[in-house]
Amino acid sequence: MDYFLELFFGGLTRGSIYALIALGYTMVYGIIQLINFAHGEIYMIGAFTALVVASALSLLGMNGLSLLMLSGVIAMIYSAAYGFTMEKIAYKPLRDAQRLSPLISAIGMSIFLQNYVLLAQTSDFVSFPALIEEFPFMESVTIMRSSELVIVVTTAVATTLLTLFIKFTRMGKAMRAVAQDKTMAMLLGVNVNRVISATFIIGSALAAVGGVLISSHIGQINFYIGFIAGIKAFTAAVLGGIGSIPGAVIGGLVLGWTESFATGYVSSDYEDVFAFGLLVFILIFRPAGILGKTTSEKV
């Protein structure tokens, strides 16, 4: 039973990270119908930013949760700036082009950012400090580490805040309106460029949160982590129903559990087989994903 619970919480942790990244994919897709293939790189850049900041600050004697918070916030700001800039230079000029053009631009952006970090940093794995120390009250708990607890709680809080933002704020309503009918939103005074920028900023900041937390949990990063996590999170977004915010969370968790149990009960060699097998299975029986709308009701 303990082994099962361990796998359960392991899957929940992994799934939370997928969910944090998948939110960015699904929000951008909902607004401009673009699969932002470079989104994983934003997550990777968030992790590297936190590493640099945390290393510098620990030299100044800072440690523990305040170090995590501060490096996390700076990583969010930095990643958000990257996301914002990326949209302006790689996607905005192509907004009226054929559908394939921004997709190719996204792949180019992804390759560019990976190589940029490869050159600026290193191709090797670098170790990432454990910013989340074991909490005293978690000492007797064997099935879950403190860092896992922090990841799950942070994801729950972030997702709740995002949901409230989308539901109640003026920008949140504008995002939903733009997703449904861009021209009508413009006719009501919505500056669509601003809404698109806000979407990239929020999605990128969430990805950075995921990047910082998981790096601290695992303990090492390299320039390639964004590519793999990006593909998994994209799978999660499609699994849950691309364009749907709760779908991204559910897709992330389902994927995390699938991988965790497959690794634990079968073999870690089969982790990806199960993950993508699940995707194929869902897409056959629910082509729009778990929470996606089966019928297109675009105006």
Partner: peptide, 28 residues
């Protein structure tokens, strides 16, 4: 913003927004 608003052909109601939220969008 200057005060010109269009009620377009086909109404273009935001289907997934409530009636009140649609009105809120008018007061954006």
């Amino acid at each position: 913003a200057l005060g010109i608003v269009q009620v377009p052909e086909g109404r273009r109601i935001f289907a997934d927004l409530t009636v009140t939220e649609n009105l809120d969008m008018g007061a954006y």
